[in-house]
Simulated assay, not measured.
Amino acid sequence: MLLVMKPGTLYEEIERVSLEIREYGLVAEICKGQHKTVIGLIGDTAEIDPKQVQNISQFIEQVIRVKKPFKRASLEFRYGEYSEVVVATPNGDVTFGQNHPLVVVAGPCSVENEEMIIETAQVVKASGAQFLRGGAYKPRTSPYAFQGHGESALDLLAKAREATGLGIITELMDAAELDLVAEVADVIQIGARNMQNFSLLKKVGATGKPILLKRGLSATIEDWLMSAEYILAAGNPNVILCERGIRTFDRQYTRNTLDLSAIPVLRSLTHLPIMVDPSHATGKSEFVSTMSMASIASGTDSLMIEVHPNPAKALSDGPQSLTLPAFEELMQDIASLAKFCGRWSSNHHLAVKPKFANLPVTARV
């Protein structure tokens, strides 16, 4: 249930209403948007009469029932306003959200050695990326596959951040490593296989750190949003959703199926920022560029792209990784399209080549 307060309501009155609501055995969460202030009522509201709640204050404009099972993640919870996740990096704050420039995250699947991660970080920064991705702990289908270098890889990510100023995104697999990962990561990634590891979601929710929540391999959109709800319910509003492909019938030609329809669907359901990972979705480097562009056209707020100096010798996910020159070329295309869509910023380091500027209107559509 949501209480929409009238414009100009004093904060003291909002606080008073919140305290009175708690007498119903509910948790009151104040969400101050750009145009409206909303008080979210968390708990069992089934037996509560909206008219009775309306009478608490003359400054309550509207009482709305949120029927979706995901309450805090719902777009209604913020009265139709999209949230943003601001991440502090050595190069300055970066904001994920619908009304902000596209954020590009790039790097190898796994951190292999210092030379490789530093070289990759320098190239992706020069190409316009704001974050470096790299796995220190790797969940693998086979117990015999490379599992990552663990703590030593975190040290290398810290060196890459020091050398380039890029933000760091890396995956957390086990709560036992939470403190180690949180010390290095600017954004903690929860991978597809841990999307419904609810005890882990509660723990990362308690950190307050920005969390990147990847969609599970066979998860419905509602499953995914309910997992986000666990993090939000633990008191952490900084959640970014990442579509990385789901399992469908055909696995011969692509690794997974990239669900681009999830982007507009999520826009209608949740206020949370959206990222797309075309590398894991397709599993083949030759399709990454096309699906990156399609993701931008579909309205994604961010892209995560796997890049490796020598994909043929990568310890994990080489076939889906772009070479450094291929990434540089892709970023020129991304910059042109993102600028055309109003999702590029002068703060990006890459100079934009106006690839689409001279096209006739009919050709741009």
Rank of each mutant, 00 (worst) to 15 (best):
G107W: 09
V187Y: 02
F340R: 08
V38I: 11
I14Q: 13
R267W: 00
S345A: 12
Y230L: 06
T120E: 07
S279R: 09
P7V: 07
Y82N: 11
Y24W: 12
L359N: 11
E76N: 06
M275D: 06
R244W: 08
A129D: 06
T9R: 01
G80M: 13
S199H: 14
K51S: 15
Q58H: 13
C341Y: 15
E20F: 09
E81T: 04
T290R: 00
R16P: 05
G208I: 09
S261Q: 06
P264D: 06
V86F: 07
C31L: 15
E306H: 09
E162A: 14
L303G: 07
T300W: 11
L154K: 11
P319C: 08
R161P: 03
T95L: 04
S279Y: 13
V38C: 05
F198A: 02
T323E: 03
M293S: 03
I190Y: 02
I246W: 01
K67S: 08
K203M: 14
E229C: 03
A176M: 13
E23L: 13
L3I: 09
S345H: 10
P325Q: 10
L10S: 12
T362L: 15
L303A: 04
K36F: 12
V27Y: 13
A312T: 08
A73N: 04
E12A: 13
K159W: 14
L212C: 12
I64Y: 00
D259Y: 00
A228T: 07
S336T: 09
L272T: 03
Y24Q: 04
Q130H: 14
S110I: 03
A233G: 02
H149M: 14
P7C: 05
F59A: 09
A73D: 03
A351Y: 10
S110R: 02
H308P: 08
K355N: 12
D259R: 01
C31K: 13
P264Q: 07
A326P: 00
R22Y: 01
A326F: 03
N99M: 14
R16V: 07
T300R: 12
P50L: 10
I334M: 07
N238V: 04
T248Q: 03
R133A: 02
S268K: 10
L330F: 08
F340Y: 13
K202F: 01
Q147A: 15
T9K: 02
V53N: 04
N347R: 11
W344Q: 05
G208Q: 12
S57I: 07
F287S: 00
K51E: 15
F249M: 05
L272F: 07
T270E: 08
G342Q: 09
Q52G: 15
A233M: 07
G40P: 01
L258V: 10
A219V: 00
I263Q: 03
P101G: 11
E112R: 05
C242E: 11
G299V: 10
Y253V: 05
K125H: 14
K6N: 04
E47L: 12
A314F: 10
I168M: 09
A326E: 15
A158R: 09
M275C: 15
A294D: 01
Y230K: 10
R267M: 03
V187N: 00
